[in-house]
Amino acid sequence: MNLLEELPIDTSLNPSNHPNPSLWQVNENSYQVQFECMASDCSILIECKQIDLVKAAANSAVIEAWRIEHKFSRYQTDNTFAEIHSKTDIIQTLDDETTQLMIFADHAYHASQGLFDITSGILRRGWHFDGSNNLPETSTIKELLTNVGWAKLGWDPSNPNQLTLPKGMELDFGGIGKEYAVDKMLLVIRKILSQTTSAILVNCGGDLACSGKRLNGESWKVGIEAVNDQTKAKHIVALSSGALATSGDSRRFLLKDGIRYSHILNPITGWAITDAPRSVTVAAPTCINAGIISTLALLQGTEAENFLSSLNMPHWLSR
């Protein structure tokens, strides 16, 4: 793989000050773009004859990913996330994109009977997944739970762009943000390359989506990271369409009395899920779809396998 060039991106479109993406040539008519986003190493593989289009597509995709990252980041003061949380207990109007994400979160909340809840982010304040055995106090969790619950939001699906956020509550799009960014990047690239023949794979730290088969008719071969040995791929998955997403807790957990507490928290009990699989990978038409199913599978704990097999969706699981 040869480094061709750096793709300079205007600083105004790089609010989080990432290094510029780099463009690599893999083969003739096959390119890879590497960049950072959402604390992951991301790459875009594009097979296409027209390098100028590849560059244009990569540029737009990276800008899109950085835009999403910045927009919903919890660590910024000048973004949409901060703006939403600065207005509590009053009706505010959400932009189109946030509205659509809220609609999605609503469906996910109801479909999972409350197990997926974007208001549960603040529970993390009670949990420190450092591999130690320090479980939080029950009272701490109870306290935090008063500010958790999708149903407590002033939000109604018939008027989805109006939100009243009760003081103390927090919305966390982090659980779906990376998958959403992957899908959006693929969309942006596809659009730019729509007039030509191409094959695309977008990968952000294991959450990935492709445009279809490779130009030679073969599937993309994707390695799923093993739990114990992060350097060696465990499963090789052949992906010819759609997307993959992986959820897991291989690096973040608590261990007490031989029970492994995963970093996945049940928003109803406020308690960490025990006996969850180490990692779950799911294939679905879109990355956000794969991501939410894999997250829900983790939340099933011991029932994860049964849950996944009942869905009839391709999946790979390791304990």
Binding site: D96, E97, Q100, L101, I103, F104, H107, A108, A111, S112, Y180, D183, K184, L187, V188, K191, A284, P285, T286, I288, N289, I292, I293, L296, F307, S310, L311, N312, M313
Partner: peptide
């Protein structure tokens, strides 16, 4: 669970393809 999967697939697709209008 199948219904749940259906619903999430459709919701995901509405989210992604829906916002694609802009591009």
């Amino acid at each position: 669970n199948r219904e749940l999967a259906q619903l999430l697939t459709a919701a995901s697709c509405a989210l992604i393809s829906g916002l694609s209008q802009g591009v």
